[in-house]
Design a protein around this nucleic acid. Structure first.
Lengths: 278, 278
DNA sequence: TTGCTCCTCACGTCACGTGAGGTGGC
DNA sequence: TTGCTCCTCACGTCACGTGAGGTGGC
């Protein structure tokens, strides 16, 4: 018979842990003194304690340990639990090594630039959404060509939607495709609003379902779209540094979160670039 | 201005999380309606939210995120935090991959043997300890040779310790070395008790400090020492399966936790085999 | 009127660590 | 008498999830 302190020493546990295991019924002392409440353990109980430690080391919760030790799970169930644990551990390893890669990318950045960057790129899932849109071809993906192309599209689109009595259910969205034809630079520019109507024959705008973006590298941009180059560059660097690859030729989807009239300086835009792990 | 629900959608957060961030002062809404308590956020706040998400993704706690964002930690401090995080992540990756290896060893065992084993091998650190001991050479490490060699040693040792008025401060310990001389099989057998005295010239026993075992694979054995082969085999298998290597020629240190008089069937012994990662 | 969104408590999670306040035997 | 070990509460940890119970505008 060992006192709780001695037993804790033999099992390399804290006294508190042994009391805890007593409280949850995982390891009851072999004897408890009725008068003092002192707990006493036998050497033979060390093997149960070791089983507990071994299962805990595999990453099982105390509840699971208890079930495994007491309710006699059969071999099949135990195998299932082990496989689940294996899958969880593999997943966590993957997540942590991604995290580690991100931390290292940050460190490289801080070493090379000597300061911390303020913009933050974040990965998001973007769900699919129904939109009404008008399109036109711009000479290039540069803001100097996009702006003059897309502005009139939005004016027209707003007019037509109002005429048709269609409500816009969210902020304006823009996205881009390579334009068919000679120029490798030209892009098809889509000006869109989320809507909740069905496509119909009499509409003077297209109603389509924008596909979801499984994983998008996103960045919030504050200011005029003339300064869109820099945030796009930041996203591109991030994608590179963190071991991802841009999809769809790197065109960003744009969500105009805030477009107060007048000065574009107060605009707030989210860029969304579809990516996959490289 | 977005309601909390809209803002949560844009930032892919739960409403609860935004309320939590408000409560801890990490992200206060731009405006709170005095009458209703409704929270309102601006699009511009999305960039702070993204910074929060990005730092959380690196594995920082919300407290750390808050310090980084608000108290303007300088570059040196931030670099220090990132390096610490990197070290922590590396450590956790190592620990988890060890865990994963153990789970896989278990699965292999269950697949090959079709049942779960009941003995549990556990890694422990064994601290150094002062002992009084007597030694003798046994013909081999087998229990049939050890038993007759070590029993008389303990009888003598107990007598001599009592005669010298030296108290035993713990359970008996036995350990083994290869014996010098012709036989490759012969082992020096040490019968020992923990004591708290200094070595002296007039002692008819040796007082030495047993070194710590950095990492020991341990197993509790219940029953006669004649059946010691099996637990030792179990430990040896575990060491193999889990990617460790036995040190000191695989001799186990033995701690006799419970040695009731009479039948050895009720003995409880701990085997401790020093190991290192292979 | 029914839904929908928002609000404020406040408990629950997991495995203990850490006092606080007190007792019994050497 | 002083230390030492043991005891029982009970709060704190971390980042929210999840009701409970209630309100205001379409």
């Amino acid at each position: 018979m060992f006192s709780i302190g001695e037993f804790a020493g033999l099992g390399r546990m804290s006294v508190r842990m042994l009391r805890h295991y007593d409280a949850i019924g995982l390891l009851r002392p072999a004897h408890v003194d009725a008068a003092s409440g002192y707990r006493f353990y036998t050497a033979a109980q060390l093997s149960r304690l070791n089983r507990i430690i071994a299962l805990k080391d595999l990453g099982f919760t105390l509840q699971q340990v208890q079930v495994i030790l007491d309710e006699k799970v059969d071999v099949t169930e135990l195998r299932g639990m082990l496989r689940l644990r294996r899958a969880q551990l593999a997943e966590q390893l993957a997540a942590d090594s991604t995290r580690l890669a991100r931390v290292e990318a940050r460190l490289r950045l801080i070493e090379s630039e000597g300061h911390m960057n303020t913009e933050e790129v974040v990965l998001k899932h973007v769900p699919s959404i129904r939109i009404a849109e008008l399109t036109a071809v711009a000479a290039s993906y540069g803001p100097e060509d996009i702006g003059p192309t897309i502005s009139p599209l939005y004016e027209q689109l707003i007019g037509r939607l109002e005429a048709a009595g269609v409500k816009m259910t969210g902020p304006p969205i823009a996205y881009y495709d390579p334009a068919p034809g000679d120029s490798a630079e030209a892009v098809t520019t889509h000006a869109a609003f989320p809507v909740a109507v069905e496509p119909g024959p009499d509409q003077d705008f297209a109603v389509v379902d924008l596909p979801a973006i499984e994983t998008a590298a996103t960045l919030i941009h504050r200011g005029s779209m003339d300064g869109a180059d820099r945030p796009l560059q930041v996203v591109a660097n991030w994608i590179d540094e963190n071991g991802y690859r841009a999809l769809g030729r790197g065109y960003a989807r744009e969500v105009y979160l805030e477009v107060p009239p007048g000065d574009q300086a107060n605009w707030v835009t989210e860029f969304q670039v579809p990516v996959v792990k490289a």
